[in-house]
Every structure is written in C-alpha cells, then in structure tokens.
C-alpha cells in the first residue's frame, strides 16, 4: 500500500511546489485526538473570530475556522464515536480557487490557499465549491461587547460584512517565524518554529505542523505513516492536511 505522501506526489503537478520555499502541511493523528475542542477556542482567540449569537448560530452562520465533527458507528450497546477535526485543507488543487471570480482566493508560494479580504466581493461561490465546508461568510459586521474588543489580536484583520474567511494556517505566526529567522540571519524557518494556535493548544499533540518540502521535518515523517490519508481523497483536491487513521482494536 502506498502512503498518502506517495499518492500525493503522484497526483500533483511535478516540480510545481518543489520550487517554493515551503510547503506548509499539517498532520492530525486521529488516534490521539480526543475531541476536547481546545483547538476550537485557540483558533477563536488567535484569529479574531466573532461571536455570532444564538439566532445566527441557529441559521448555521457560525464562525469556526476549525470544528470537531463526530461520526457514530454501530448501534447501542455496540456503538463507537469518533472525532475528526475539520479545518481548511489548504488543498493544492483547490476547488475554491477555481470558483472565485475576482481571484480573492489563490495559492501562494508557501503552498497556502489564501483568502484576500480586500479583494473578496462576497459571491460565496468558493463556499459552495468547497467540499469540506470550511469557508465562512461574514453576514454582518459583528460587534464585540465592550471591553471584549481589547482581546483582539492586532496581527489579524477584523473582517467586515460581505467577506469570506477561513483558516489561514495562522499565517501571522508563519510571518513572525520567518521574520525571526531573518533576524537570526537564517534563510529558512527551522522545523517546529511555527505552530498555529490549534496545534499549539492540542493537549494530546494530535496535530503536527511543518514543511513538507523538508523530508526530515516531523510532519514529513507523519505524512509517511502508513495510517495517513486525505479526507475525500477521490476528489483529488490534494489537501495539505494528512489525517492519520485511528487504530482500531476489537472489543
């Protein structure tokens, strides 16, 4: 059986990402993930996600760049529940990028699928094209009850009405790490120097983040794990998130 990394290399355009400096990738080990949702609040705090309120939540307009999905198997009493964190998969061949009429979402040189708020005109086509349902639309300009706005992260834009948004792999942290590397006189960021908020918070260390172009990085090693797979692999979106299947024992 080929590992997900080998499949990944087969499907993507040869050489395309290799010439880039980095290829940011995340691995999520479902055998470690407990569904505790520390990552969800970490993301909320880091990325200035608004509180949409009960009414908007009921209309499924919640803003959660990362969420925990649950899947049941079997029936009582032989029932199992499994969690899977779902966030932007930073696909190399991203359906959302094809969808956008104004090129507000595009692929950058770090292998990131990015969203430019200033360009976005809010057609919401990308959200429709996204098979992972991880794009979120600002139906309103959300307010923060005073003084909650004092918490807002100055490194991240507060989005306004009419703009689509999604996980950025905490690009502000990547930028910071690159900046620190430059100050050190290094051309490259070392493995482990960038941790997105969710990865940082994860108690079980289910998530690992790093550069797939570096074969010795922790995340590259995880991607070579035989348990690795991509969600909805058959769509050939070649995501940058490698999930590691949960280990099942009988019982």
């Amino acid at each position: 059986m080929s590992t997900v990394l080998e499949k990944f290399k087969k499907y993507r355009k040869p050489g395309y990402y290799d010439k880039f400096d980095y290829h940011w990738t995340m691995s999520i080990d479902l055998d470690r993930c407990t569904g505790c949702e520390a990552c969800v609040v970490a993301c909320q705090a880091e990325n200035n996600l608004p509180i949409v309120g009960e009414q908007q939540f009921a209309m499924r307009r919640e803003m959660k760049w990362i969420r925990i999905e649950r899947y049941w198997e079997g029936e009582y009493p032989n029932i199992k529940l499994q969690f899977i964190p779902m966030l932007c998969q930073q696909c190399d061949q991203a359906p959302c990028e094809i969808a956008c009429p104004v090129f507000a979402t595009y692929h950058n040189q770090d292998g990131l699928n990015t969203q430019v708020y200033n360009r976005c005109i809010g057609t919401r086509t990308c959200a429709v094209y996204c098979p992972y349902e991880v794009r979120f639309f600002n139906w309103f300009t959300y307010e923060w009850d005073e003084p909650l706005e004092q918490q807002l992260n100055p490194d991240v834009t507060v989005r306004e009405k009419g703009v689509m948004e999604k996980c950025t792999f905490c690009i502000q942290r990547i930028r910071q790490a690159k900046d620190a590397a430059k100050d050190d006189g290094r051309r490259r960021v070392r493995d482990g120097e960038v941790t997105p908020a969710c990865v940082q918070s994860c108690p079980t260390e289910a998530m690992v983040f790093g550069d797939l172009n570096d074969p010795d990085s922790r995340v590259s090693k995880m991607a070579r794990n035989p348990r690795g797979y991509h969600v909805l692999e058959e769509l050939n979106t070649t995501p940058s998130i490698v999930y590691l299947k949960r280990v099942h024992t009988d019982g």
Binding site: R67, Y71, I84, R227, E233, Y243, K245
Partner: peptide, 18 residues
C-alpha cells in the same frame, strides 16, 4: 453544528473505516 453523524461510505475517517 452537526448534520448527519454517520459516515455514509464517504471514508471520512480513513479508507476502509466507515
């Protein structure tokens, strides 16, 4: 936030899982 909570053959939890 949940829609369906069954995998329905989509292999979301990995190939050969659900």
């Amino acid at each position: 936030t949940d829609g369906t909570t069954r995998d329905l053959g989509r292999n979301i939890l990995g190939p050969g899982h659900g």
